[in-house]
Write a protein that binds this DNA or RNA. Structure first.
Lengths: 357, 357
DNA sequence: ATGTATTGGTAAACAGGTTTACTAAAGGCT
DNA sequence: AGCCTTTAGTAAACCTGTTTACCAATACAT
């Protein structure tokens, strides 16, 4: 029984021999760095067809020292936010002639650092990096001095690299202003991991809006923890435990809103009847929630596309400027905000919820 | 001004020289195909440390002819279904020591074929393929004879490759039986692209359940078109235009359900008050919809993991069996199904909706 | 006729690993 | 002492492109 031998693929040498020219001639003709008389070109063309020659990618990469591949590193690709980002990054990379390798860190710093090293190790030509957690200096020193990295969505403070973020401060302010305009004065803020740029900025916008409306800031209404449904749940529980609970919640991510909604539902608190809510991101199908959730929409796909553009610019011209760029957000007004009403009913509901627990 | 020269990386040759052994010794020691006396090994170790040697990946791939990389090709990575799949595939690949490159076809056959060629062209060692549309033979001939491809979620009929699918027929039957048990007899079926395996099987399960309950099958209640929100919208409109509209809808994907819900909402038809619904996939946060949507849950993450397991088995042992495997689905009972009631009210709502249009 | 471009190529080095075939020296056995 | 087997290692070929340095022949100008 014969081994199922892999069909041997043709190489440049085979083509050159078949076309009766030298290897260099074939290679240079293929790469357009030489032009040949019609006869010779035609012979080469025919040999390539005949032998079904396709250049060996690895040989090419070894020889050229570049890969025409980009990497996207995100905490979790299954998260709709990052999935949307990945979709736009893939499309943009493709349009520039780059492939995309996908890296999910699951927030393990070791993996983040490892992936960042891939651009140094020449596994990819460039890297789009989105993290989720504050940096203790590890990421900074891993990225530092590395060219070909662009930061997406979340900052790694101190890094000198092109950055593409959204306007978190404005988003935080818009959401809060909208709630204030509806008449709310006690507004809960549920934030991401404490210290992370986006959380700092969104809460900053929240504080700004309150200050502008002469509403004192109550630290008890502010809770950081992460953009997760679990954080949404636990922070909402804390808010409901307060002596003077809020009449509105600004949930600063999709997942937080989903978790918060869960607790409110379990407590029998209706939105926006007894509690108003504004969410953030607007990647989840909030339009179909009940009520349709009002949310600050981040231009996630734009961010991915723009990140690739800047990365490619940087790869082709390493002197490319390392500026930070902010993309505008937009408040999508739907049905989860109403004037505060029936505060008595709210506190009754909360009381029975507390005893139930 | 000096060029910002790339720091030259150390090669095996440098290490060998530094450690005063031959290249072959270093290479073989690194790959564990030889053991050396402590002294020599220690010298090599130290040289590697000193020179910060890291093997060049491309040279390694060229030499070995393998890449330790898998590709996942899906129609659209931003779709939560495929994003979830991608997440589990990435994790599983990682656990086997493989990287993952991501390919979104956006349902363009040319891209699908091109990506499939990548395993032949040695860009990746294996490929997980999920499509979305019926095959006109193009895919079949592209995959045929290609080893190292496994099919996920959707079939390409005729292909001899390992396949990992979910039990669509059972899912379709369960959903329909559940609706029938609630008392429905006119049940709309909104399916994927006509002819695609999953759509055929889910509708097959639907038909089986009706037959078992002695309910005649009305073709007017069945509509194929694709697992998209737009299909959900248009099919639902058609159902509402019927002389005798259904009292329940089986939406055979998340997106279809979302689109269908949109039209029902616009028509003022409440779920499950006037219309019951069962969805499929259960990747969207249906728990937080109002009503919480009852849905058949597909084990998407399991499918990804299992696909990688089988792909890796096949890569390491090409004689690996090309069987088809079915993963069980599960009906998640939530709040979108009720007995048919108030048919009069439903038809009144539909009438006013029709005139409004 | 001689010098100079231009055209149409070539041979060989290089990228950086892996692997095969082979050798020299030391150890063990009779 | 003579022979065999390990042990420790080497030189060189190979994987497949790209690129540099260079040459021969023709075309053109003087």
């Amino acid at each position: 029984m014969a081994e199922p031998t892999k069909p041997k693929r043709a190489t440049v040498r085979d083509v050159a021999e078949e076309a009766a020219v030298s290897i260099a001639t074939v290679s240079r003709w293929l790469n357009g760095s030489i032009k040949l008389p019609d006869g010779t070109a035609e012979r080469i063309r025919r040999s390539i067809d005949k032998l079904r020659y396709e250049p060996n990618l690895h040989a090419r990469r070894l020889s050229l020292g570049k890969t025409d591949t980009l990497a996207l590193v995100v905490p979790d690709i299954a998260d709709p936010f990052f999935a949307t980002l990945a979709g736009s990054v893939e499309a943009a990379a493709e349009s520039f002639g780059f492939g995309l390798v996908l890296c999910a860190t699951l927030n393990r710093p070791a993996r983040e650092v490892d992936y960042i090293g891939r651009v140094y190790r020449n596994h990819v030509d460039g890297l789009l990096f989105a993290t989720n957690h504050p940096d203790d200096g590890t990421l900074l020193s891993a990225i530092e001095g590395q060219s070909g990295v662009v930061l997406l969505d979340e900052d790694v403070p101190g890094v000198n690299a092109p950055k593409v973020f959204c306007d978190n401060r404005k988003g935080g302010r818009q959401a809060t202003e909208y709630l204030v305009a509806a008449g709310h004065r006690r507004i809960g803020f549920i934030g991401g991991v404490e210290g992370v740029m986006s959380a700092v900025e969104r809460s900053g916008g929240y504080a700004e809006a309150l200050k502008a409306a002469n509403i004192p800031i109550d630290p008890a209404l502010i809770d950081f923890g992460g953009y997760t449904a679990e954080q949404g749940r636990s922070a909402t529980r804390k808010l409901l435990e307060l002596a003077e609970p809020p009449t509105a919640i600004f949930a600063s991510s999709d997942q937080i809103a989903i978790g918060s909604l869960d607790v409110l539902r379990e407590a029998g608190i209706s939105v926006p009847g007894e509690m108003s809510m504004v969410a953030y991101d607007d990647v989840a199908p909030f339009k179909f929630f009940s009520p349709a959730l009002t949310a600050v929409r981040q231009p996630v796909a734009d961010m991915g596309r723009r990140g690739v553009e800047r990365l490619v610019s940087q790869i082709t011209d390493p002197a490319f400027e390392m500026t930070e760029e902010r993309l505008p957000v937009q408040l999508m007004q739907r049905g989860s905000v109403a004037p505060p009403a029936d505060v008595y009913r709210l506190s009754r509901l909360i009381k029975t919820w507390r005893t139930k627990r």
